[in-house]
Design a protein around this nucleic acid. Sequence first.
RNA 1: GGCUCGUUGGUCAAGGGGUCAAGACGUCGCCCUCUCACGGCGAAAACAGCGGUUCGAUUCCGCUACGAGCUGCCA
Length: 484
Amino acid sequence: MSNVKTRFAPSPTGRMHVGNLRTALYAYLITRHEGGKFMLRIEDTDQVRQVEGAVDIINRTLAGTGLIHDEGPDKDGGVGPYVQSERVKQGLYMKYALQLVEEGKAYYCFCDKERLATLHTQIEGTDKEITVYDKHCLSLTKEEVEANLAAGKPFVIRQNNPQEGTTTFHDDIYGDITVDNIELDDMILIKSDGYPTYNFANVIDDHLMGITHVVRGNEYLSSTPKYNRLYDAFGWEVPVYIHCPLITDEEHHKLSKRCGHSSYEDLLEQGFLSEAIVNFVALLGWSPDDNQEIMSLEELIEKFDYKKISKSPAVFDYTKLKWMNGEYIKAMDFDAYLEHALPVLKEAVKGDYDLTKIAALVKTRIEVFTDIPALVDFFDAVPEYDVEMYTHKKMKTNAETSLEVLKDLLPLLEAQEDYSNDALYAMLQGYVADKGVKNGYVMWPVRTAVSGKQSTPGGATELMEILGKEETVKRIKAAIEKLQ
RNA sequence: GGCUCGUUGGUCAAGGGGUCAAGACGUCGCCCUCUCACGGCGAAAACAGCGGUUCGAUUCCGCUACGAGCUGCCA
């Protein structure tokens, strides 16, 4: 057992989009591959963006995808609480912030929004403009600070970053990255409502909770130097950084809830399987040595090597997800498949038909379960169709030939007792042989008559088996009527 | 605007000084076939541009272009 420990630290702000899911997945895969621990922490430091029930969604998503954590709000590992608002109540973040203030590594700031809005410092000797805080409140004397605090003036606590030199940090995916310290904003550590910012709470908690590998989205890459200065200020060891490339939409923009991009739960509702979603998302930004594409979570764990995570962003390809989902459906054992398919079929087909048989017909013809209704819409009633549909060049059929065939067949179908697929097929083959025509010459019109559709899941006899003798005969008669 | 990161077919993605530059999705074609689908076979389709370094660059370096992220008392 290694001492690797990763965490997934979402904000409870709604459904989880696939970018977050992939971050969670990679963090999970790293620990499972290394034999370490995976932790869940709830980052609810933004009181405004909170969404009721969002923590439940997080738990459901993690449970549904199989990304089971070893520690978290519901599983104490000795470094809790695992919900940041609870840690706020303990005064934990404030304590550390004040320690930095004491040491001159952070300071109180009383600037209001209006003043902040006007801040655009000029870089000396250039026309370059930079938007960082100007350290205005750093020059406040101890007495002035005390007086402001005593007067109840709202304040924040800011990190005191150096303005000269450079800061370099290492990321295991992107390598060494260096920035000029002049670029380092004195970011806010404690907000005026007393809550810590993500930036601060994250560093404190990752350290206190023993996180060894910080896995997160690439959007944090540019603020990482500031986190490092925080680790340094405390004299803490910097964790291994693993920044994952972003997942974008077709327009190459970062996926986000705000833009209404699909969440895990949305995809479930759209008929996707949890396993397929996980599998697909794993391949956005990473691929195994052997290039295998369909992988279970266990296989992902075995093959996952975070060093091979790519640097460039990946477009979320909905079409390929669908294909993959179709692969999962085809590979499913029939009972498991029925559990998903039957509920959809019950909605789509009201007639007294063998839904299990219909489900079997449809299994290789769908990519998502929501594809089903459109495929089986002819069972309850033959849809309106044009007699032109009987014309098929390759089958050498048309309305006239079809009428003849159907008329010939009607008495045979009425006489037929065994309406199993095999028996019906054998019977029709007999007719085909007698007539000395091609298969399709009779199959096409029968299938059309019975379904009213250009294409159907299953052939004529398979459909007739499900429809049964009475309904079949009825439909053949109606077709003859229509053709005359 | 500034900073940071990125750039192999439409998309995902191998490779990393000498390859006819893998594979997958999608597209198209053929085969199978009672339609469609499945399955099988095949095709078209890519190293952003320009300069270096080198006997040789898709691979290393630089510049440019383009894209994205950050630039919030959001995470």
